[in-house]
Amino acid sequence: PSTSLFNQETLQQRLQTLIEGARESWTYAIYWQSSVVDFSGASTLGWGDGYYKGEEDKGKRKTASSQSAAEQEHRKKVLRELNSLISGSSASADDAVDEEVTDTEWFFLVSMTQSFVNGSGLPGQAFNSVPIWVTGKERLAGSSCERARQGQVFGLQTMVCIPSASGVVELGSTELIFQNSDLVNKVRVLFNFNN
Protein backbone atom coordinates (compact mmCIF):
# COMPACT_ATOMS: atom_id res chain seq x y z
CA PRO A 1 0.00 0.00 0.00
CA SER A 2 1.07 3.62 -0.44
CA THR A 3 1.98 3.85 3.25
CA SER A 4 4.81 1.34 2.77
CA LEU A 5 6.32 3.66 0.20
CA PHE A 6 5.99 6.43 2.66
CA ASN A 7 8.13 5.79 5.69
CA GLN A 8 9.80 7.81 8.40
CA GLU A 9 13.02 8.31 6.42
CA THR A 10 11.46 9.64 3.23
CA LEU A 11 9.11 11.80 5.29
CA GLN A 12 12.03 13.65 6.86
CA GLN A 13 13.64 14.11 3.46
CA ARG A 14 10.40 15.46 2.01
CA LEU A 15 9.98 17.96 4.85
CA GLN A 16 13.60 19.06 4.46
CA THR A 17 13.25 19.40 0.69
CA LEU A 18 10.10 21.46 1.16
CA ILE A 19 11.69 23.92 3.59
CA GLU A 20 15.19 24.19 2.18
CA GLY A 21 13.87 24.50 -1.36
CA ALA A 22 11.31 27.17 -0.59
CA ARG A 23 11.80 30.76 -1.72
CA GLU A 24 10.33 32.00 1.53
CA SER A 25 12.01 31.53 4.91
CA TRP A 26 10.01 29.03 6.90
CA THR A 27 10.93 28.30 10.51
CA TYR A 28 9.66 24.74 10.63
CA ALA A 29 7.61 22.11 8.82
CA ILE A 30 5.52 19.42 10.51
CA TYR A 31 3.70 16.42 9.09
CA TRP A 32 0.54 15.52 11.04
CA GLN A 33 -0.24 11.86 10.39
CA SER A 34 -3.86 10.78 10.19
CA SER A 35 -5.09 7.63 11.93
CA VAL A 36 -8.54 6.19 12.62
CA VAL A 37 -8.97 5.69 16.34
CA ASP A 38 -12.28 3.86 16.87
CA PHE A 39 -15.12 2.02 15.22
CA SER A 40 -17.03 5.22 14.61
CA GLY A 41 -14.34 6.17 12.12
CA ALA A 42 -13.26 9.21 14.15
CA SER A 43 -9.85 10.24 12.87
CA THR A 44 -6.99 11.82 14.74
CA LEU A 45 -4.05 13.78 13.45
CA GLY A 46 -0.93 13.07 15.47
CA TRP A 47 2.77 13.83 15.18
CA GLY A 48 4.29 12.20 12.10
CA ASP A 49 7.59 14.05 11.82
CA GLY A 50 9.00 17.55 11.79
CA TYR A 51 11.90 19.56 10.44
CA TYR A 52 13.10 22.60 12.41
CA LYS A 53 15.17 25.16 10.52
CA GLY A 54 14.95 28.17 12.87
CA GLU A 55 14.86 31.87 12.14
CA GLU A 56 17.16 33.19 9.47
CA ASP A 57 17.50 36.66 10.93
CA LYS A 58 19.17 35.95 14.29
CA GLY A 59 18.79 39.59 15.25
CA LYS A 60 15.02 39.36 15.14
CA ARG A 61 15.01 36.15 17.22
CA LYS A 62 12.93 36.58 20.38
CA THR A 63 15.78 36.08 22.80
CA ALA A 64 15.77 34.87 26.35
CA SER A 65 15.59 38.49 27.54
CA SER A 66 12.03 38.63 26.37
CA GLN A 67 11.14 35.72 28.67
CA SER A 68 11.63 35.46 32.42
CA ALA A 69 14.77 33.74 33.65
CA ALA A 70 12.49 31.20 35.34
CA GLU A 71 10.83 30.35 32.02
CA GLN A 72 14.21 29.91 30.36
CA GLU A 73 15.43 27.75 33.26
CA HIS A 74 12.32 25.61 32.97
CA ARG A 75 12.92 25.10 29.24
CA LYS A 76 16.56 24.12 29.80
CA LYS A 77 15.54 21.66 32.50
CA VAL A 78 13.02 20.03 30.16
CA LEU A 79 15.67 19.83 27.45
CA ARG A 80 18.13 18.21 29.83
CA GLU A 81 15.55 15.57 30.74
CA LEU A 82 14.64 14.96 27.12
CA ASN A 83 18.33 14.62 26.31
CA SER A 84 18.87 11.97 28.97
CA LEU A 85 15.69 10.21 27.86
CA ILE A 86 17.07 9.99 24.33
CA SER A 87 20.72 9.37 25.17
CA GLY A 88 19.85 6.99 27.98
CA SER A 89 22.44 8.54 30.27
CA SER A 90 21.64 10.92 33.08
CA ALA A 91 24.85 13.00 32.96
CA SER A 92 25.35 14.57 29.55
CA ALA A 93 28.23 16.96 28.90
CA ASP A 94 26.22 18.69 26.21
CA ASP A 95 26.71 22.43 26.02
CA ALA A 96 23.74 22.72 23.71
CA VAL A 97 21.44 21.94 26.58
CA ASP A 98 22.55 25.09 28.41
CA GLU A 99 22.10 27.21 25.33
CA GLU A 100 19.09 29.56 25.28
CA VAL A 101 15.92 27.77 24.14
CA THR A 102 14.20 30.13 21.71
CA ASP A 103 10.45 30.57 21.51
CA THR A 104 10.14 28.79 18.17
CA GLU A 105 12.28 25.88 19.35
CA TRP A 106 9.99 25.57 22.34
CA PHE A 107 6.88 25.75 20.17
CA PHE A 108 8.29 23.02 17.92
CA LEU A 109 8.99 20.78 20.93
CA VAL A 110 5.53 21.38 22.41
CA SER A 111 4.01 20.50 19.04
CA MET A 112 5.30 16.94 19.41
CA THR A 113 2.84 16.43 22.25
CA GLN A 114 -0.21 17.67 20.36
CA SER A 115 -2.92 15.85 18.40
CA PHE A 116 -6.17 16.92 16.73
CA VAL A 117 -9.33 14.84 16.91
CA ASN A 118 -12.09 14.95 14.33
CA GLY A 119 -11.35 18.19 12.57
CA SER A 120 -10.21 20.23 15.52
CA GLY A 121 -7.52 22.90 15.23
CA LEU A 122 -6.03 24.29 12.03
CA PRO A 123 -4.60 20.90 10.99
CA GLY A 124 -7.94 19.21 11.62
CA GLN A 125 -9.84 21.83 9.66
CA ALA A 126 -7.46 21.48 6.70
CA PHE A 127 -7.57 17.68 6.61
CA ASN A 128 -9.93 16.36 3.87
CA SER A 129 -10.50 19.99 2.94
CA VAL A 130 -8.56 22.90 1.47
CA PRO A 131 -5.31 24.57 2.52
CA ILE A 132 -5.58 27.07 5.37
CA TRP A 133 -3.16 30.01 5.22
CA VAL A 134 -3.05 32.49 8.12
CA THR A 135 -0.77 35.51 7.74
CA GLY A 136 -0.33 38.25 10.36
CA LYS A 137 -0.10 38.36 14.15
CA GLU A 138 -3.63 39.74 14.52
CA ARG A 139 -5.19 36.96 12.48
CA LEU A 140 -3.23 34.30 14.34
CA ALA A 141 -4.10 35.86 17.71
CA GLY A 142 -7.77 36.05 16.71
CA SER A 143 -7.93 32.50 15.38
CA SER A 144 -10.40 30.01 16.82
CA CYS A 145 -7.55 27.49 16.88
CA GLU A 146 -5.60 27.40 20.12
CA ARG A 147 -2.48 26.20 18.33
CA ALA A 148 -2.55 29.26 16.08
CA ARG A 149 -2.93 31.59 19.06
CA GLN A 150 -0.08 29.77 20.82
CA GLY A 151 2.11 30.06 17.73
CA GLN A 152 1.56 33.81 17.65
CA VAL A 153 2.61 34.11 21.29
CA PHE A 154 5.85 32.31 20.38
CA GLY A 155 6.64 34.73 17.60
CA LEU A 156 5.07 33.21 14.50
CA GLN A 157 3.53 35.53 11.90
CA THR A 158 2.47 32.91 9.36
CA MET A 159 0.97 29.43 9.75
CA VAL A 160 -0.12 27.19 6.90
CA CYS A 161 -1.86 23.81 6.86
CA ILE A 162 -2.02 21.92 3.58
CA PRO A 163 -3.90 18.60 3.33
CA SER A 164 -2.19 15.61 1.76
CA ALA A 165 -3.08 11.98 1.15
CA SER A 166 -2.79 10.68 4.69
CA GLY A 167 -2.25 13.75 6.78
CA VAL A 168 -1.56 17.47 6.85
CA VAL A 169 1.62 19.40 6.20
CA GLU A 170 2.00 22.45 8.46
CA LEU A 171 4.53 25.20 7.97
CA GLY A 172 5.22 28.12 10.28
CA SER A 173 7.36 31.23 9.98
CA THR A 174 8.35 34.25 12.02
CA GLU A 175 8.13 36.16 8.75
CA LEU A 176 5.03 37.50 6.99
CA ILE A 177 4.50 35.14 4.06
CA PHE A 178 1.49 35.60 1.83
CA GLN A 179 -0.42 32.77 0.16
CA ASN A 180 1.10 31.38 -3.01
CA SER A 181 0.11 28.35 -5.05
CA ASP A 182 3.73 27.33 -5.63
CA LEU A 183 4.10 26.04 -2.08
CA VAL A 184 0.72 24.29 -2.15
CA ASN A 185 1.67 22.55 -5.39
CA LYS A 186 5.04 21.52 -3.96
CA VAL A 187 3.29 19.86 -1.02
CA ARG A 188 0.94 18.03 -3.36
CA VAL A 189 3.91 16.69 -5.33
CA LEU A 190 6.15 15.84 -2.38
CA PHE A 191 3.44 14.34 -0.17
CA ASN A 192 1.10 12.73 -2.66
CA PHE A 193 1.69 9.04 -2.01
CA ASN A 194 -1.08 7.69 -4.17
CA ASN A 195 0.96 7.35 -7.31
Partner: peptide, 26 residues
Protein backbone atom coordinates in the same frame (compact mmCIF):
# COMPACT_ATOMS: atom_id res chain seq x y z
CA UNK B 1 -1.09 3.25 18.33
CA UNK B 2 2.65 2.92 18.99
CA UNK B 3 3.56 4.71 15.75
CA UNK B 4 3.16 8.21 17.18
CA UNK B 5 5.42 7.73 20.23
CA UNK B 6 8.08 6.20 17.97
CA UNK B 7 7.73 9.10 15.54
CA UNK B 8 8.02 11.59 18.38
CA UNK B 9 11.12 9.91 19.76
CA UNK B 10 12.77 9.83 16.33
CA UNK B 11 11.95 13.47 15.70
CA UNK B 12 13.12 14.48 19.17
CA UNK B 13 16.44 12.67 18.76
CA UNK B 14 16.98 14.32 15.39
CA UNK B 15 16.02 17.77 16.75
CA UNK B 16 18.41 17.49 19.72
CA UNK B 17 21.24 16.27 17.50
CA UNK B 18 20.79 19.05 14.99
CA UNK B 19 20.53 21.58 17.81
CA UNK B 20 23.84 20.36 19.23
CA UNK B 21 25.47 20.81 15.83
CA UNK B 22 23.90 24.25 15.42
CA UNK B 23 25.18 25.38 18.84
CA UNK B 24 28.67 24.07 18.18
CA UNK B 25 28.78 25.73 14.77
CA UNK B 26 27.64 29.06 16.17
Amino acid sequence: ASAVPQARKASLARFLEKRKERVMNS
